[in-house]
Design a protein around this nucleic acid. Structure first.
Length: 230
DNA sequence: CGCCAGGGCCTCA
DNA sequence: TGAGGCCATGGC
């Protein structure tokens, strides 16, 4: 038995292939665990930085910011902890919200300086999520992105794209709450890190190509199962 | 020029 | 607890 949630994945994966997230432009050898060996802590931290920077921001802009940080040798917990917030803000300017995000990176670095990533990630998912959410600047999506893409644990990431796509298809209401949609999707899929990783990335790809705020349903691979006809 | 981008916090009923 | 304002750059 294949449900609609699974069909969506099958169609998207057939069409767009594996996305190999989390994307990193700096280190070509950075890849998810299931593609090879595990991330080291430097790589895990780089992904965490990315999850903060990409909050309500296009990845293109985030790339510039990460590039700047890396160029200044600041892409580490110790360095960001030591560097003044103003300096961080200046470097991540292209990613927008630079005052907020530089503060968040500072707070996070202070936190991870005291409690190592290894220690943090060694917990079961629900404890890890709870702890991440207690950190200022980390909400549900950022927490789940960190758990899935940095810690490589099976948590499904919900974002505006996920809500948009699933509500347009007719699988949920527009106003559905984060945890509710997360619960719904999770129960309809085999709980594996690889699947959750690819699925979220594929939804992002679909949203960028077709399911935009102003949808372009022409040639959308999901048009056959989507209720929205535009 | 306006809209939107891989959210989250704060405030105020 | 939920809606609304705020944060900000860059691509189109």
């Amino acid at each position: 038995m294949v449900n609609t949630t699974q069909r969506i994945y099958n169609i998207l994966h057939e069409k767009y292939d594996s996305q190999k997230w989390w994307p990193t432009t700096l280190t070509g050898d950075l890849h998810p665990t299931y593609h090879g060996k595990k991330h080291n802590e430097t790589q895990q931290f780089e992904i965490i930085v990315g999850t903060i920077l990409t909050q309500n921001t296009s990845w293109k802009n985030v790339e510039k910011a990460i590039f700047n940080l890396n160029n200044n040798k600041l892409l580490s917990i110790e360095k960001i902890k030591k560097t003044k917030q103003e300096k961080i803000a200046e470097l991540i300017k292209p990613a927008g919200y630079f005052n907020q995000k530089s503060e968040r990176l500072k707070i996070l670095s202070e936190y991870l300086y005291k409690k190592t990533i290894k220690e943090l990630f060694s917990q079961p998912i629900n404890k890890l999520r709870e702890e991440l959410l207690s950190i200022k600047g980390i909400g549900p999506e950022t927490a789940d992105s960190i758990i899935l893409y940095s810690a490589n644990k099976a948590t499904f990431v919900i974002d505006t794209y996920t809500k948009r796509i699933f509500s347009r298809i007719g699988l949920c209401k527009k106003e559905i709450k984060y945890e509710e949609l997360q619960q719904q999707i999770t129960t309809e899929l085999p709980r594996t890190t690889k699947l959750f990783n690819e699925y979220h990335a594929l939804l992002v790809e679909l949203a960028k190509r077709h399911c935009k705020t102003k949808p372009e349903c022409n040639e959308c691979p999901l048009s056959t199962i989507c209720k929205k006809k535009i």
